[in-house]
Nucleic acid binder design. Structure first.
Length: 868
RNA sequence: GCGAAUGUGGCGAAAUUGGUAGACGCGCUGGAUUUAGGUUCCAGUGGGGAAACCCUUGGGAGUUCGAGUCUCCCCAUUCGCACCA
């Protein structure tokens, strides 16, 4: 065995072995228990980033660990290959998105292979291939037939200069990212998927996912947002016709406190009122130009203007003025709200700003209402009781809502209703690099679905977007077609599907990615659902919710039989790195890559400054942030693999933080991981440089060797639990490092010691193999074995090795640590108490004092409570 | 703004069920060996104190024999908010 660890050679050898033996090819076998381990597939953006390395290493550790437990494991890989960045690259470089995407896939596939992941590459797929997206189109048509897919207008960002629709991401401070033109909102026809039809099931079935992180389930539940309230109307007259202004509220108990109503700029009432008011029209136009993003709406200044119209309060009959407000959205609820300034914080501030009346109708015992400042209790549902509300006085929230809803119902002006925060999923994108929506527009027949036999509608791969609209519209060979119904010339739909469609069912396709005549086949029954899904926390809501929805639609079409696609979910944290910059007096901030920055430390290791290596001049620190191009703080995994090898990259990312937490990059930490692998290599090399020890009777070891052997099996037990149950890879690695330190200190050269060391090294090699598969592949061979460590079974704990005669017990006096005593394992509590009280160090704190109580925690500690 | 999370030495972190705070790693200090240097090995390393001992888990209160862990209030940071993926 070579004395020096050479990762490049070691990794090449291990990968060659796995390749020639097809070690990770997954074959359905009903006799074996399956385990489907899936990491979220990457967008082929160019090269791997650290987030990918982290994601796929976590998946690979779980995959290899499950394999060693005898499971039939499937770990596939594919490409989420449609999307906006390919079009941006096309604009920048003049390369068609297809070529850019395929080149990136080729490069990134090579990178993934160099990291040694136990992937079944035979099932690889890319969502931009017609054989994949054909089934997006096919299922979309089935949804259309069932009324799950439908057409209505939706609002988009319109760049008036480029004459194109922009993604939210391409709108910066209300302006187009390329043109700088002020963005307008524009309403266009779009296709929607009725995810709200599944809202109840998507909410209730969260209970079927106990192995999902609590926080993700909470976020999904909030997103779906079930609320029960009252939908009711304010009647009014319009040109002598009787009309109704409908609103929805969860606080019907405050209805007697309504002092005005507010409607969205797009509301018909606003449109009507603006006919005679240029000022109102101007305000409406301003609102219509504004943002469509919820976060902006929530934080922007609330503005309003009176519509000059009044409606009638449905219970009191009083006239209620109507305002047009920029914070009311047409897309939510009814596009109109009742305003109760006394009991809604937003209404309160709006009323103060525009000097509108504030009328208290809820009171809390002992609290005094004042219109000067908002107080939390004004909106308190639990403690509040109706006041100044006539017949409702004294009623609490639930009772009041029921009584008021009943009265509104009697007048035919409203009823209780459940509403959802969840909105239907708009899937139309006015973009080229996506899956074409299979619809043909005919002047005679309207919107005609493409017949199944004509699927897929193939996207031409040679377009080069230039930023002005969708290039598909300029492709007569794509657009011009014949109507499938009447045969007359017609136009093909040029919108493509949201890329979330592609990622909503790829996990099912991996089970049978080779078939051409169906979306999925019977193999999904064997592999699905995914046993372990791993991906970024940033996908906690949208991707996971859409995938759950899509699964339920496929189930209702009898394509699959599972209710939920992902049994267990691990959401990995982001990879962060420090941000360095200089801010010139004029011009833009310049960011420096941390690899090019040198830190200045004082002699205690405390940071005193940082300089750019090339010029030695200081740079400022902008704190820690997610690795991103814009902040130039990314680390290229490729450079890391070339310098230290894949195992070091894998070891560091698993060791630096638990998987669900953010991970801060550290070059020194990487070097530390490499050091450990070198030490491990040397431990084995030194050991195998002498003849292997003969079989040894472990029941008759010296106390020191017994202790060491106990530590070996304690470590095995801990690592088994940390990887298999807790998924805390960092503590598993720390435990093995501790063991390696103990082993390094063992200088005993006896036969027994060499036998203990041999067992320890074998076990360490086995249990580290999921994390660092290449080096352990080589060490396993060096330790005298054949074949691959990856194919070995996980070792069992020798429980006899764990036995000990005495335990160390901590002794506290009044909760403070005062001593340690050794007690026999089987000692009763009384005996432990006696030994503790007799201890010299403890006696100093107890003698002459009144012992009030002694608490004995078996196997752990004794706490002596004394007076004074 | 709403929703979700996080906060522990100089740094990344550990403490799994309310029971020894700081495992493991990095950095730093001193020493040894080797080298042109990176390397490797040994010892030390939360703060204060001569010591006994005291203090210490973002801040403040509380429950408990005992709180990093539970409860309440406050502060800071990060993620998501529907056309980035």
């Amino acid at each position: 065995m070579d004395e020096h660890y050479s990762p490049a050679q070691v990794e090449k050898d291990a990968q060659a072995y796995w390749d020639t033996h097809q070690s990770f090819k997954a074959v359905e076998d009903p006799k074996r228990e399956k385990f489907y381990c899936l990491s979220m597939f990457p967008y082929p953006s160019g090269k791997l980033h650290m987030g990918h390395v982290r994601n796929y290493t976590i998946g690979d550790v779980i995959t290899r660990h499950q394999r060693m437990h005898g499971k039939n494991v499937l770990q596939p890989m594919g490409w989420d290959a449609f999307g906006l960045p390919a079009e941006n690259a096309a604009m920048a470089n003049g390369v068609p998105p297809a070529k850019w995407t395929y080149d990136n896939i080729a490069y990134m596939r090579k990178q993934l292979k160099s990291l040694g992941f136990a992937i079944d590459w035979g099932r690889e797929l890319a969502t931009c291939k017609p054989e994949y997206y054909k089934w997006n189109q096919w299922l979309f048509l089935r949804m259309l037939e069932k009324g799950i897919a439908y057409k209505k207008t939706g609002v988009v960002n319109w760049d008036p200069v480029d004459q194109t629709v922009l993604a939210n991401e391409q709108v910066i401070d209300g302006r187009g990212w390329r043109t700088g033109a002020v963005i307008e909102k524009r309403e266009i026809p779009m296709y929607y998927l009725a995810i709200t039809q599944y809202a109840e099931e998507l909410l209730v079935d969260l209970d079927k996912l106990p192995e999902w992180p609590e926080r993700v389930r909470a976020m999904q539940a909030n997103w779906i947002g079930k609320s029960t309230g009252v939908r009711f109307a304010f009647p009014y007259k319009l040109d002598d016709r009787d009309e109704k202004l409908w609103v929805f509220t969860t606080r019907a108990d405050t209805i007697m406190g309504v002092t005005f109503c507010a409607v969205a700029a797009e509301h018909p009432l606003a449109t009507h009122a603006a006919k005679n008011s240029p000022k109102l029209q101007a305000f409406i136009d301003e609102c219509k130009r504004g943002t469509v993003m919820e976060a902006d709406i929530a934080t922007m200044e609330k503005k309003g203007i009176p519509a000059g119209i009044s409606v009638t309060h449905p219970l009191t009959g009083e006239p209620i003025p109507v305002w047009v407000g920029n914070y009311v959205l047409m897309g939510y609820g009814e596009g109109a709200v009742m305003a109760v300034p006394a009991h809604d914080e937003r209404d309160f501030h709006f009323a103060k700003q525009y000097k509108l009346p504030i009328k208290q109708v809820i009171g809390v015992e002992g609290e005094k209402f004042s219109t000067d400042t908002w107080q939390e209790w004004y909106a308190d549902k639990e403690r509040g009781r109706c006041v100044r509300s006539g017949k409702y006085d004294g009623l609490g929230y639930g009772v009041a809502v029921d009584a008021i809803a009943a009265d509104l119902k009697a007048k035919g002006l409203g009823a209780k209703q459940v509403i959802w925060r969840l909105r239907d999923w708009g899937v139309s994108r006015q973009r080229y690099w996506g899956c074409p929506i299979p619809i043909i527009h005919c002047d005679h027949c309207g919107d005609v679905p493409v017949p199944d036999k004509d699927l897929p509608v193939v996207l031409p791969e040679d377009c080069v977007p230039d930023g002005s609209g969708n290039p598909l519209t300029k492709r007569p060979d794509f657009v011009n077609c014949l109507c499938p119904k009447c045969g007359k010339p017609a136009r093909r739909e040029t919108d493509t599907m949201d890329t979330f469609v592609d990622s909503s069912w790829y996990y099912a396709r991996f089970c049978s990615s080779d078939i051409a005549n169906a979306m999925v086949d019977e193999r999904v029954k064997y592999w699905m659902p995914v046993d372990q899904y791993i991906g970024g926390i940033e996908h906690a809501i949208l991707h996971l919710l859409y995938s759950r929805f899509w699964s339920k639609v496929m189930r209702d079409m009898q394509l699959v039989s599972y209710d939920e696609p992902f049994s267990r979910l691990l959401t990995q944290g982001m990879v962060l790195n420090e941000i360095f910059f200089r801010k010139p007096p004029t011009g833009r901030i310049i960011y420096f890559n941390p690899a090019d920055v040198e830190l200045k430390l004082d002699d205690r290791g405390q940071r005193i400054g940082a300089v750019f290596k090339s010029d030695g001049q200081p740079v400022e620190s902008g704190g820690i942030g997610t690795m991103s191009k814009s902040k130039n703080n990314g680390i290229d995994p490729q450079a890391l693999i070339e310098q230290y090898g894949a195992d070091t990259a894998r070891l560091f990312t698993m060791f630096a933080a638990p998987p669900e937490m953010t991970l801060e990059w550290s070059d020194e930490g990487v070097a530390g991981a490499y050091r450990f692998l070198k030490r491990l290599w040397k431990l084995v090399a030194d050991h195998v440089s002498k003849p292997f020890p003969a079989k040894c009777d472990f029941t008759n070891l010296s106390p020191a060797l017994r202790d060491l052997r106990r530590q070996v099996h304690q470590t095995l037990a801990k690592v088994t639990d940390d990887i298999g149950r807790r998924r805390t890879f960092n503590t598993a690695i720390a435990a093995v490092m501790e063991l390696a330190n103990a082993l390094g200190k063992l200088e005993d050269g006896s036969d027994a010691a060499r036998a203990v060391r041999h067992e320890a090294l074998e076990l360490m090699t086995l249990i580290l193999s999921p994390i660092v598969p290449h080096i352990t592949h080589a060490l396993w061979l060096a330790l005298g074995h054949q074949g691959s460590v990856a194919d070995r079974r996980w070792p069992p704990v020798d429980t006899t090795a764990l036995k000990q005669d005495n335990l160390e017990i901590v002794v506290q006096v009044n909760g403070k640590l005062r001593g340690r005593v050794s007690v026999p394992v089987q000692a009763a509590d009384d005996k432990v108490r006696e030994i503790a009280l007799a201890d010299e160090a403890v006696a100093r704190y107890v003698t002459g004092k009144d012992v009030k109580k002694v608490i004995v925690v078996p196997g752990k500690l004794v706490n002596i409570v004394v007076a004074g």
